[in-house]
Design a binder for these strands. Sequence first.
RNA 1: GGGCGAUUAGCUCAGCGGUUAGAGCGCUCGCCUCACACGCGAGAGGUCAAAGGUUCAAAUCCUUUAUCGCCCACCA
Length: 901
Amino acid sequence: MPREIAKAYEPQQIEPRWGDYWVKEALFKASADAPGPVFSIVIPPPNVTGSLHIGHMLEHTEIDILTRWHRMRGYNTLYLPGTDHAGISTQRVVVKYLADQGIDYKKLGREEFERRVWKWKEEAGGQIVEQMKGIGESCDWSRERFTLSPEMTRVVREVFVRLYEEGLIYRGHYLTNWCPVCLTVLSDLEVTHEERQGHLWHVRYPLPGTKEFLVVATTRPETMLGDTAVAVHPGDERYKQLVGKKVLLPLMNREIPIITDEMVDREFGTGAVKITPAHDPNDFEVGRRHGLAEIDVMTDDGHMNAAAGAYAGLDRFEARKKIIEDLKAQGLLEKVSDHTHAIGLCERSKTIVEPRASTQWFCRMKDLAKPAIEAVEENRIKIIPENRREEYLNWMRNIRDWTISRQLWWGHRIPAWHCGDCKEIMVARETPGKCGKCGSAKLTQDPDVLDTWFSSGLWPFSTLGWPEKTADFKTYYPTSLLITGYDILFFWVARMIMLGLHFTGQAPFRAVYLHSLVRTTSGEKMSKSKGTGMDPVALNLQYGTDAMRFCLASMAAPGTDIVLSDDRLLGARAFANKIWNAARFLFMNLDKFEQGGTSIEELAAPEVREKAPYAAGGSVPLIDAWLFAQLAATIETVNDALANYRFHEAAQSVYQFFWGDFCDWYIEWVKPELLSADRERAIVAWKNLFAGFDTALRLLHPFMPFLTEELWHQLPQRAGARSIALGEFPVAQATWKNAKAQEQFGLVQEVIGAIRTLRAEMKLDPKKKVTAEFSSLDAPARSVIDANREAILRLGILSELRVSAERLPEAGGAVRSAAQFDVRITYAAETVDAATELPRVRKEIERIKKDIASKEKQLGDETFRGRAPEKIIHGMEATLEERRVELKKLTERVAQLEKGS
RNA sequence: GGGCGAUUAGCUCAGCGGUUAGAGCGCUCGCCUCACACGCGAGAGGUCAAAGGUUCAAAUCCUUUAUCGCCCACCA
């Protein structure tokens, strides 16, 4: 079985193969059949509108790592993948898409429009799911439900009607945020605020019959056309005599009253405020209190309407300019000052939002929020990371009613019918035949649709067959986990919690893990609705999907955002390459064994990996005992880290183990063993290496699925075994744990390190073999070094290693000292340059002296001795003793060096 | 205006009460050693933003300040 393995890892050749769907199908089946407890995960949808972006990669990398890990540990996993949210962004993209083809969406009619969006969803959404498969995404999409499917629509109606009957949904005339580009009302959450440099215009409103003016300040002069009053503070002496009188509204020549209201801030501007109930939230309230008329001066698309008189037809910002000019011309502009203020922008279109009074549907939140707050306070829902918990609670405690109607074409129609005759409004599950009040058949359904988050908020139970008590619902609800970005904590998560609790009495999930967001180098957020950012498909081709996944995982410390950089990606790619080449080493040896006449069945039988570490000559070699002890520790760290969603910790510990322990030490150490003339010894070495590698591969699999899959298939496997993903996740076996081996090998590592350092300092030819002396007063240490002499000679490039219990004689050579031992290299021709060595040693002495002083002080402190835990005190005493020995040795060394120079 | 977070090696970030603070990249020196130069070995580099406080013990907890992010918020 000759193996032809490329010298470097080439993901392009590997990934398409293991991105194939059969692997995943096998995974889903294995998952469904798994014997373990149910683990259900609610995950966000792929977007319909744009391409796959790097934010998805992070999200699905984390989901995929978790699910592969769970599955390998025998959990039965169910996914509830959301589908597109049928939202504003979808509609906007489709509208634009149609416009590009010269089609006006309004002329299409609602049904045709929906059909087009459907088509779009199938094409674009399908593509995204395909791409997801390509990134090693192991979610089972077969349970994906389209938001607007008949089943989902039924649930949405059911929920709407129930909430309405409970008085939690109401219809009201309020001031709402209107986006002139999206042509719909927006919830408060969909409006982002931005500081902008603007102006404060001071406008003179003439007092009829006098030459006097009342000066009001405004940031939006165009709204003055809709003014219906001017307000001052009731206690404001300056305007006392004017209250109750009228002023002339300039440009419109309309007389409007001067009223008082507590809302007015006497300090701001002139202390007199123009009141435009139809276009300002404060003014709207004032208008209500004083029974003022609302004059809407704008059209849906942000132009002035007929009520704006001469300005009708102008864009709102052109109107502003014109109004300023006209006021100036009439001498009514008192002054203009600079003013920075926060303006509301539409989250999607970035247009300036126009506050407008309109009739909308609202959902009362206070009662829904209360149990949702308690659930989190009582930890029935765990929010990770911790700091988002506070954010959630804070927001929920100050929650405001939710505008749920949208003036879109795309979404769930509100199940309300208006009677054309008596204006009665009926909310019902099914289309009513006639008006329940007057019997008229002239019924029309409310033209509005529901906010996309309304139906999304039902996801955890709407997908499981609720309100029927289905088997799925009983088994999988409440779900185990929700994974999503913290940017939709309020939009989606909070609403799922509220609605889930309200309708099922149970929290929809036990834990919410909010992952970081990937930002561009400029710090901008990459979100689904923005096409910005790096293209993950291109990055995958460049670095390999495994490298990208590993990179993301290793950076995904919870609570902070991550910025992906080429450097980090290159590092991850190097790691993938390292694994690849370690495998090559294995394969080459396997081939050598085969050529040597030992059958692969014997060397690489699946059973071989189960009994490691193997003993040679009655005992397990130190190197093998150490490796498996390190493996056990790494497995525990990984399990612990993943259980707490600490992906970076898991990834880093795997990295450290594989590169640092397995490659740098273990492989280097066993190389000659594998070629040993002693056949039995060679085979033991091989079996241990093979078992160690196989375990490491399974440990790595959740992080690097393609690479590990490929290598796993290159290794001989049990008949019928289909995928490493169906294998078992390594278990940190009790027999592997071995603190003694770790300590002993640590000493060996230290000694080899000291020898190498000396060689480098002496600038020895790397090939030059020299003699070294090791001396220690500690007998066990001496015997460990003695027992591993062979490898130390090789790794230290030594011709001889003398081990002694005596202090080293004074003369010659280069010395490295630790508390436990001294190492010296004697080589006549070369010696350490005292000029470079002396400063180093002196610096070291300074550091140690400081350390000794601080420890002596602390240990001399009675309070410390009285209160610190025993372990700390003993540890510190031992260290202090070591430091003293080191200091003594170094001081002698300085004297020696000084004498020599 | 409120809330949350960040400030640690040249860069990007871990660590978040205990004994000499870590990693990756970059840098310096030496190596193409038959798995790997996407590599190997060695090394330099940090008074953990500042000032107070709590503690036997603080990068880690508290307070204040500075700078930078993010989220929330109807002051015309």
